[in-house]
Amino acid sequence: MNRVLVLGGGQLGLMMAEAAARLGLVVDRYDPERALLLPGTSDLAVPITWEECLERYPVVTVEREAFPDSGLSARLAASDRCVARGALAVIPDRYTQKSMLDELGIATAPWRNLDRVEDLADAAAEFGGVVVKARSGGYDGRGTWIVGDGGDLSAVPAEELAGRAIVEKKIPFRRELSIVGARNPAGETLFYPLTRNWHVDGILRLSLAPANASAALQPEAENILRRIMEKLDYAGVMAVEFFEEDGRLLVNEIAPRVHNSGHWTHEGADWSQFDLHVHALAGVPLHSLNVHGPSAMVNLIGTPFDQAWLQHPGVVHWYGKSVRPGRKVGHANLVAPTLEGLRKGLNAWADVLPEGFEAILDSELALD
């Protein structure tokens, strides 16, 4: 295999194409909204037909979970060439995703389906604080409503969501963690270390890797991700986000693709998650990973490019998107010999990090 088609025209597919070019392979991107092909890393879009796709691309992968209901992208996502086909049938709907995890005996926040308006009050009576999530389409905090124990349920549009949402128990987690790993068609797997994540208003703002004091949790996290990939017969990189509660891991979300919390691997490991994704799809034997040291990823959210960033510690990755509030337009990666050194480097990025990031670093440093 030397040519892959990725469904999606965003920055994740572009970074896959960049990784493939370094490996002597080709990743082309199909933009579903424009119904046009973006060859390699080019921005010059061209038309393509179903027959041409079958001729050129033995493997199809994805950079996102949702596609139009009809058209070439929908047809390709459902084809037997799409290595994420099984995952796309399960993961995008939180009901089927949670049901699969229950079937596998993998721990998640207790939950129930929001079939009727009355189910919301029943869930709150059972769980206390609740999190209501639209079954599909939610992203970066959208489609999510959080109500604390005894809180006002009227803020949740229950009538609108009935039959289209789930209700979870609000977990008093110690921290949010994620694991990114890969599986190739031969069933070989490889994993990065657990990553500590900090979200604000549902949007990832900072990742620290490897997560401190996580060695005891790493085998459990790897086993969970391995079982999910095997269940879905998945090839490529996949990510699982967890809540850490009382020394155990609860699955929060699954992403059948390269993931924002794995962006630190650009500079923090010998092979980035994009390299690893292409390796897995090409059937390359998955070898051990070398992690360079404590790493941080700072998401650049809704801000114009600032030339001063180039004088800060770290490496800037800019996506070339138009800027609007809440939009991920780039990220910066930092690597240091120690977490304390990483903290010093992050101080230079205080203007793009929300207030309170120092407390996250303090809490991570305090873990043994």
Rank of each mutant, 00 (worst) to 15 (best):
P285V: 03
L286Y: 10
H287L: 14
L289N: 00
L289D: 01
L289R: 02
L289S: 02
V291R: 01
H292W: 10
S295F: 11
M297L: 08
V298R: 00
N299Q: 09
L300M: 07
I301F: 02
G302L: 10
P304A: 06
P304R: 08
F305Y: 15
D306K: 15
D306E: 15
Q307N: 09
A308H: 12
L310S: 10
Q311C: 12
H312V: 07
P313G: 06
P313L: 14
P313T: 07
G314W: 00
V315C: 11
V315I: 10
V316S: 06
V316L: 13
V316C: 06
W318M: 09
W318H: 09
Y319E: 08
Y319M: 11
G320H: 04
V323P: 06
V323D: 06
V323Y: 11
R324C: 03
G326A: 14
G326V: 13
G326S: 11
R327W: 05
K328L: 13
K328I: 12
V329T: 13
V329I: 15
G330A: 14
H331Q: 10
A332L: 06
N333W: 05
N333E: 13
L334T: 08
L334V: 12
V335Y: 08
V335L: 12
V335F: 06
V335N: 09
V335Q: 04
A336Q: 08
P337D: 15
P337T: 07
P337K: 14
L339Q: 13
L339Y: 11
G341K: 04
L342N: 01
L342V: 03
L342W: 00
R343E: 14
G345Y: 00
G345C: 06
G345S: 13
L346H: 01
L346P: 00
L346R: 00
N347F: 10
A348G: 05
A348W: 14
A348R: 02
W349V: 02
W349N: 08
V352M: 02
L353V: 07
P354R: 05
P354L: 01
P354C: 12
E355P: 01
E355D: 13
G356V: 04
F357E: 01
F357R: 01
E358V: 11
A359Q: 13
I360G: 00
I360T: 08
L361Q: 03
